[in-house]
Amino acid sequence: MIWKTIKVGFHRLGSPASFYRFSTLVSPWLWAGFALCTAIGIYYALYVVPPDYQQSDSFRILYVHVPSAWQAMAGYVVMSILAAIALIWRIRMTEIMAMMCAPIGAAFTAICLATGSIWGRPMWGTWWEWDARLTSMLVLLFIYLGIMGLYAAFDDRRKGARVACILILVGLVNIPIIHFSVEWWTTLHQGKTIRIFGESSMHYSMMPPLIWMTIAVKLMFGAALLDRSRNELLTQDRRKGWVQKKLKSQGVS
């Protein structure tokens, strides 16, 4: 019974009008959650957590660097799932959402690269190092940009979205390379210190802000994705009946 309700609800989200209503309703809550979690996370990160004994205060960059890096990769995985659904079942909403993941993911990749570079300056003594993890992250940024460029180059938005979905699935091979790059190659970038299962080599007092920031960034990804998808949907469907009806009934707000 519950399963059926979920299934029907999911299918209903495939319809543009319901998706529009859903995203208008949900996205403010996600933004609010993001604001709350970021506030708590940044408070902990800058005031509560004591300085590291080796890196002193510079490790505080971790709390924006690591969540962004995780989200840059998680965003790609989400985008790939949406792209696979779009290619297999040809659901239009997932095409749009997959396309709208790219600019947000690119933003997180850019944050990760920029903050990592700033962190590297005092710790490694260099802004940039051509090691495996940094290079593969840079490649991820260019894949994101390629997806955006490819989508924008088509006059027919739907065709552009489907072709870009193929590129998304091809680019997925980069994700494991980024993830395992610190294990496969000996690099300047430090290895895995945070584990979900088993012992983390990070002290537990450093964990809370990281968890808050990670949740915040995830909520933000969802909120921005809904907002952008809603806009894109409206742009594509501007001549369609449901948009016209909505515009006439509620005035243009």
Binding site: I42, D57, R60, A114, I118, W119, P122
Partner: peptide
Amino acid sequence: FEYAIYVWSSYGI
């Protein structure tokens, strides 16, 4: 902070 410029510019970005 000891590394104020680095930390704050990261958070700024």
